[in-house]
């Protein structure tokens, strides 16, 4: 790997970790969303060092262009309430959770660091690998796989997205004033019918009790 690549890795890694820390620590969700955006861009850079050009573009399009924007829209829709005031009530549980995760992460990172010297290092394309090597991770190479071997999975994912869209509408749409009134009327009618039934049952049991023991 070239020196530029190495530099890019360290730059993106630093920004990625720093923005991740900012995402999970900033109080304001809007700021956190911006930190997330930065994180995503940093990861896109990492993908470039890994010859995943198409994924880097996709990362920017989908995450930065869609998901983060969705977050920002939601935060705007909710308004100032999107920021939750501090509350020490469950501090203990949260501290425990962070401690456990920190322990696990430390163990995992130390393991990885220990085995790290044995792992392969990156190298550029060599002559033996031929012209194909430069194609790795490009739109053409990944697109070919997507539309041949994985076409069914690809279509399934589109169905999943459709379902998600319909689900999101169903969950978040709410009611018009008219619909809300109609639903309230239906609920009142049902409660009245239930009360009537219950009264009839109570009357019947009273009668049975009165005539019992014959």
């Amino acid at each position: 790997m070239s020196l530029a690549g190495t530099l890019l890795f360290y730059l993106c890694a630093t920004i990625g970790v720093g923005s991740a820390v900012a995402t999970v620590t900033l109080r304001s969700p809007l700021r956190a969303a911006v930190a997330l955006l930065l994180h995503i861009v940093a990861l896109a850079g990492l993908y470039l060092t890994l010859s995943a050009h198409f994924l880097a573009a996709l990362q920017l399009l989908v995450y930065a262009g869609a998901v983060v924007v969705l977050f920002v829209f939601t935060i705007m829709l909710i308004g100032p309430d999107a920021e939750v005031p501090p509350n020490a009530r469950t501090f203990g549980v949260r501290a425990l959770g962070v401690a456990v995760v920190a322990l696990l992460t430390a163990a995992a990172v130390s393991t990885v660091v220990r085995i790290s010297p044995q792992t392969p290092t990156l190298a550029g394309c060599t002559a033996e690998q031929g012209a194909e090597c430069g194609q790795f991770g490009g739109v053409g190479a990944l697109g070919r796989v997507l539309y041949t071997d994985s076409v069914i999975l690809f279509e399934l994912v589109s169905v999943l997205l459709l379902v998600a869209v319909i689900g999101a509408v169903a969950v978040a749409r709410g009611r018009t004033t008219k619909e809300a009134e109609a639903a309230k009327a239906r609920r009142l009618a049902r409660e009245a019918a239930e009360a009537e039934e219950e009264a009839a049952a109570r009357k019947l049991s009273a009668e049975v009790a009165a005539h019992g023991g014959h």
């Binding site: 949260r94 425990l96 456990v100 322990l103 696990l104």
Partner: peptide, 15 residues
């Protein structure tokens, strides 16, 4: 009913 408490228990299991 606190979702991150459930998450913590899960993390303990992983531990």
């Amino acid at each position: 009913g606190v979702v991150y408490a459930y998450g913590t228990v899960m993390a303990l299991g992983v531990l």
